[in-house]
Write a protein that binds this DNA or RNA. Structure first.
Length: 199
DNA sequence: TGTATGATTAAT
DNA sequence: TTAATCATACAA
């Protein structure tokens, strides 16, 4: 029995998957074999029909992966400087994905830690987490499974239990950094987590 | 071919 | 509030 999240699990409405990804773990294996792990603490949902969604108008070279079947990564460059990682959800041909906005890292090699940088803030933001996990467009379209160097693991039973008994506060708000679709409450984050990008 | 613009970030 | 920085989308 594996705790690795499958394409099947992601093949649902992005509005269900996005909050369900909170508490799950994103795992990255670098080219040198090193493994970095972080708990997902902040997400946003994007899907067809939503003016803020890259796939709102039509399928293009850039947004093509948003239209793919669930279970692949959609990675794009923003502002010519940063990358953003999305988890593609729902059925093929329907554009939808979860933007991973922040991670609470489990650990991080001391020698890589930039001076004066607070550990909790290392992956606090969509561009920052891609930097730390060395995620760029080479991972666009990759299947989310261990063999590809990037995958997801389900919530631990303990975390799920805590969540079920209401011990974990989840906040739902409007999305950040967009000019359209600002009325939709499609952002979720762990209320008490120090790694959340912004409140 | 030319140009405006980001699902951001860190610094002022 | 602004600069950094460039692939993409869309107009022409």
């Amino acid at each position: 029995m594996s705790n690795i999240i499958s394409s099947d699990w992601l093949n649902r409405s992005v509005l269900e998957v996005a909050p369900d990804l909170l508490g799950c773990t994103l795992v990255r294996q670098l080219a040198d074999g090193q493994i970095l792990r972080g708990q997902i603490v902040e997400v946003e949902a994007y899907q067809a029909g939503d003016p803020a969604c890259h796939g709102y108008r039509k399928k293009t070279d850039r947004n093509a992966m948003m239209f793919s079947a669930a279970g692949v990564a959609y990675v794009y460059l923003i502002y010519g400087l940063y990358h953003c990682l999305n988890i593609v959800t729902d059925r093929e041909a329907f554009a939808s994905a979860v933007l991973i906005r922040a991670l609470q890292l489990e650990s991080y090699p001391t020698e890589r830690l930039p001076p004066k940088q607070k550990f909790d803030r290392l992956a606090a933001g969509p561009g920052k987490l891609c930097q730390v996990l060395e995620i760029d467009r080479r991972l666009n379209g990759c299947q989310l499974e261990p063999g590809q160097g990037l995958w997801l693991e389900a919530r631990s039973p303990q975390w799920q239990q805590d969540c079920d008994r209401g011990a974990i506060a989840i906040t739902q708000t409007s999305r950040i950094g967009i000019t359209q679709g600002v009325d939709l409450l499609w952002r979720w984050y762990l209320q008490d987590c120090a790694a959340v990008s912004r409140r």
